[in-house]
Simulated scan of single mutants.
Amino acid sequence: MTQVKNTFQFEDMLKKHHLKKTAPRLRVLSMMYSKTTATSQPDLENVMHDIDRVTLYRILNIFEEKGIIHKVFDLNGTANYAVCSSGCQENHHHDEHLHFNCTRCKNVYCINDLYLPGLTLPEGFKAESFTLYANGICPKCEKKPHH
């Protein structure tokens, strides 16, 4: 379940990450925190008509760089963005959780409450990040009759 934040918390978040408080950044943060699934830039463009594509692209990039959001790919290879856990920092994401792609509704869910064992790699390998995906049917789609 997403945590609802207010404008002051978003302003504090921007300040903490040394970002200027701008109306478009605050709107994108508000929209991202209101979603229960990852969302793509085109989906954001469809609901945020007053923010042009280039500005939205820059906002998503700086938020990802600062550890506010992380990128996850859907079944079509489209980049989607989801809010990071509080453990993420600038240029170092801790989004080692399961990303669940629903094959029916095409939504991407971040599953944070699943225990994942540590990653043990062969000698000489050093992981900087990893992404774990599962594909299947989400609870919403499981309840609906399939056409």
Rank of each mutant, 00 (worst) to 15 (best):
T2D: 08
Q3H: 15
Q3S: 13
V4G: 05
V4C: 02
K5G: 04
K5T: 02
T7V: 14
F8V: 04
F10R: 02
E11Y: 09
E11F: 09
D12M: 14
D12N: 12
M13D: 07
M13S: 03
K15H: 13
H17G: 01
H17I: 08
K21N: 07
R25N: 13
R25F: 10
L26I: 06
L26H: 01
R27L: 13
R27Y: 06
V28H: 12
V28L: 07
M31I: 05
Y33D: 00
Y33M: 00
K35P: 00
T37F: 03
A38E: 10
S40E: 01
S40F: 07
Q41Y: 02
Q41L: 07
P42Y: 03
D43Y: 00
L44V: 08
E45N: 02
N46M: 04
N46H: 03
V47R: 10
H49G: 13
H49V: 03
H49W: 02
D50A: 05
D52W: 08
R53G: 03
T55E: 15
L56M: 01
L56H: 01
Y57I: 00
R58H: 12
I59D: 05
I59G: 06
N61Y: 08
I62L: 05
G67M: 06
V72F: 06
V72P: 02
V72H: 01
V72L: 10
V72D: 10
D74H: 05
D74K: 07
N76M: 11
N76W: 09
G77K: 05
T78P: 07
A79K: 14
A79M: 02
A79T: 02
N80F: 04
N80E: 14
V83T: 10
V83Y: 01
C84H: 03
Q89N: 11
Q89I: 08
Q89C: 11
E90W: 04
N91W: 10
N91F: 11
H92C: 14
H93I: 11
H93D: 13
H94N: 12
H94L: 03
D95F: 08
D95P: 04
E96H: 15
L98H: 14
C102L: 05
C102M: 03
T103Y: 11
V108F: 00
Y109M: 14
C110H: 13
C110S: 15
N112Q: 09
D113T: 13
D113H: 14
D113P: 05
L114Q: 05
L116E: 01
L116K: 08
L116H: 04
L116R: 04
G118A: 11
G118K: 06
L119E: 07
L121T: 14
E123T: 13
G124A: 06
G124Y: 07
F125D: 02
K126Y: 12
K126R: 15
E128S: 14
S129T: 11
T131I: 11
T131N: 07
T131H: 11
T131G: 12
L132T: 08
N135A: 05
C138R: 07
P139G: 06
K140Y: 09
C141V: 04
E142C: 09
K143G: 07
H147R: 10
